[in-house]
Simulated scan of single mutants.
Amino acid sequence: DIALRITNVYENGDTEFHYDYCEDLKDGRGITTGISGYCTGTGDAWEVIQEYHKLTGGNDDFTPMDKTLKKYSDSESDSTVGLENYCDVWTKLGKSDTKFQQAQDIVRNKLYYLPSQKYADDLGLRLDISRAQMYDTGIQHGTGEDADSLGALINDANAEFTQDSPGDSKSTLSINGNQVDEIVWLNMFIKVREDDLKNPKEEDNQGGGYWAQTTYRTKSYTYAIEQGEFMFKNSVKILDNDGNPITVTCNTSTSQRRRRRDRTRPRFSGHRALVKSFGPPKSRRQRPQRFVEL
């Protein structure tokens, strides 16, 4: 849907789902792959492979690498020894194997999409732009329990509301017992997130100042809010990674220049943090999804 494609712009520089992407970015996370930047050193890539094995019966091109992938996942190692053919296999399957693409979708939903939408449900968010912002934050900041995570940022934003805060979005949240307009809350959340990008709390997220270079994500959402893009319908106007206005629609790719994948997520924002925080993923969300389906 549109929310996923918006995040694709920030992650990949276009709206497409790059199931075949595979690269060693030398960022301490091993090899980075697929639609959500699954990494061999953080565990979520191994999650994808295991889901793929379930769909293939366990005998596929990744099977010879299973022991190595599990070892690097368990030890959180960025080593690529023994994975010399890994990108060749990932790229080949990512381009045409629908089961492998399905496995990536399953893990994205389990680790990032569904947890982010659970937060949206708990907050009572009803506007597409708010729920999409929860997903994008979950992808970059993680859905676990550390100080830079989606949940922590929500708590920080909520703490700013000590009285009723009216607005014009026609959607009202109950925050700390106060009646808060949803767009007023969203603007505060985006401010809190941007502050966190500039000054991450977790040491693992501070190196190189990389997060501070990605405030185009928050500025893009602020632009969409200013355009009144609260409900997406069939399209939404945002800013691309260079600050240029673009329109994201369902089933339509953007033709903007590709830029390097945004690898600014917390080092261990994947399955370990998720399991600790949420337990097994639920099969049914509390409220029906409001995004436009592809």
Rank of each mutant, 00 (worst) to 15 (best):
S220F: 13
S277N: 11
R284M: 02
S277C: 07
A273V: 13
V236C: 06
Y135C: 15
C250E: 03
P281A: 03
Q286A: 10
A3M: 09
S130M: 02
E23G: 09
F62Y: 04
L150I: 09
A273C: 14
P280W: 02
S253P: 09
L111A: 05
T32I: 02
T63A: 06
T33S: 13
T42R: 10
R5K: 14
D74W: 03
D181I: 12
N8G: 11
R258H: 08
K219Q: 13
S77C: 04
K201L: 07
P280R: 03
Y210I: 10
D78R: 04
E23Y: 14
K191Y: 08
K170Q: 06
C87G: 15
R267Q: 11
G151K: 03
Y210R: 05
K71E: 09
H18K: 09
K70Q: 04
L150Y: 01
K92I: 01
T15F: 07
N176R: 13
L153D: 03
V236I: 07
K110F: 07
K26Q: 08
R287K: 12
I190P: 00
V184T: 13
N205T: 14
T254I: 06
D196Q: 12
D196E: 12
N205Q: 10
H18A: 15
T218V: 10
L111H: 06
E229I: 15
D148I: 03
F230M: 12
Q213H: 03
D242I: 03
R193K: 09
V248N: 01
F189R: 04
G270P: 10
V9W: 01
Q117W: 03
I129T: 14
T264G: 11
P288E: 15
G142S: 03
I35F: 08
D122F: 01
Q101R: 09
T222D: 13
V248I: 10
T162F: 06
R108N: 10
G124T: 06
P281F: 01
G57S: 11
V81E: 12
G82I: 02
E16Q: 11
G138P: 04
Y112C: 03
E203D: 12
I106P: 03
Y52P: 05
G34A: 08
P115M: 00
N85V: 01
G37T: 14
N199H: 14
A132G: 07
G167C: 09
V248T: 02
S255M: 05
I49M: 05
W46M: 07
D105A: 10
P288N: 13
R126Q: 10
F62M: 06
D20M: 15
D61G: 08
V81D: 11
G142D: 01
W185M: 08
H141K: 02
L4F: 04
G57N: 10
I190V: 12
